[in-house]
Structures are given as structure tokens and as C-alpha cells.
């Protein structure tokens, strides 16, 4: 038995906090502990940041957030229709040479249990991430 929530969000910075608050509330309701809720909040925000910064060609476009609430896990899907990128070119951040960008995806992968990213040049990006209740 699972519930599905869908949000369509304008690709503007000011709406990311709304999604962050919403996911925090959902995660709290289904019994994640405080640390896991923080992890989910940040991962959610980073996925939205990605859609806002790189995903949508124009600010008037929306990106889609789906949250699948399961008994023992939360599955989050963030999908934009933007320019996408070649995921083979993604490099993990190098602490000896820190850069201003590229941290978001790394943070998502570090904090969530299961992360899949589908992206293709010109076809947008979909981030699927799952967190299990411990």
C-alpha cells in the first residue's frame, strides 16, 4: 500500500523552500527520525536546485515532483524538461580543488539510500532517490 503525491513547481528559487517544507512534513508523518528528515530535506532541495539552475530553459516552466509514500520508505522523483547533461561527464567534487558547483548531486548520493539519475542532452533530467526507514 503506498500513496502518491504530485507537485508541479515553477522553476524559480523562491519555491524550493516550499517543496522542502512539504517533504519534511511527509517524512515526519511516516516516522523518519530527525537526522533522516534533515537528510531528505537537503536531498529534496538539491534535486529542486538542480531543476531550477540547470533544468528549465525558462523560469516560466515547471518541473515535476513525485513522492511515493511507502510503509518503510520514501521514493522521490524530480523531473525537469530542460537541457539535460551527459551524466558520463559528471565528476565527483575534489576536495583538493573545491569548486563552486557540482556539490548538489554528490550531496544527494551521500544522503539517500538509492539514487538513480537519468539525463540526456536536450531531454531533461530525472532524479530518483529513495530513503528507507531504519
Amino acid at each position: 500500500m503506498s500513496d502518491l503525491l504530485k507537485l508541479s513547481v515553477p522553476a524559480k528559487p523562491e519555491y524550493v523552500s516550499l517543496v522542502r517544507l512539504a517533504i519534511s512534513s511527509v517524512a515526519n508523518t511516516i516516522g523518519f527520525d530527525v537526522e533522516a528528515i534533515e537528510d531528505i530535506k537537503i536531498a529534496m532541495a538539491e534535486a529542486c536546485n538542480n531543476a531550477v539552475l540547470h533544468g528549465c530553459k525558462e523560469c516560466s516552466e515547471n518541473y515535476e515532483v513525485e513522492v511515493c509514500v511507502n510503509e518503510n520508505s520514501l521514493l522521490i522523483i524530480v523531473k525537469d524538461n530542460g537541457k539535460g547533461y551527459n551524466s558520463l561527464n559528471y565528476k565527483e567534487p575534489d576536495i583538493n580543488c573545491p569548486k563552486e558547483g557540482g556539490l548538489g548531486i554528490f550531496i544527494i548520493k551521500s544522503l539517500m539510500d538509492d539514487v538513480e539519475i537519468y539525463s540526456e542532452n536536450g531531454k531533461g533530467t530525472t532524479i530518483r532517490m529513495k530513503k528507507n526507514i531504519q
Binding site: 530535506k41 537537503i42 532541495a45 538539491e46 536546485n49 539552475l53 573545491p98 569548486k99 563552486e100 558547483g101 556539490l103 548538489g104 550531496i107
Partner: peptide, 16 residues
């Protein structure tokens, strides 16, 4: 209470 990668990126930029 909260910082994300955009905030960390700005600190990294200033550090540089």
C-alpha cells in the same frame, strides 16, 4: 538552521 550546496558554493568561491 540550514545551508545547501548553493550556499556552500558561495563560501568556496569566496575562499578561492
Amino acid at each position: 538552521d540550514y545551508i545547501d550546496s548553493t550556499g556552500l558554493g558561495i563560501i568556496i568561491g569566496a575562499h578561492g
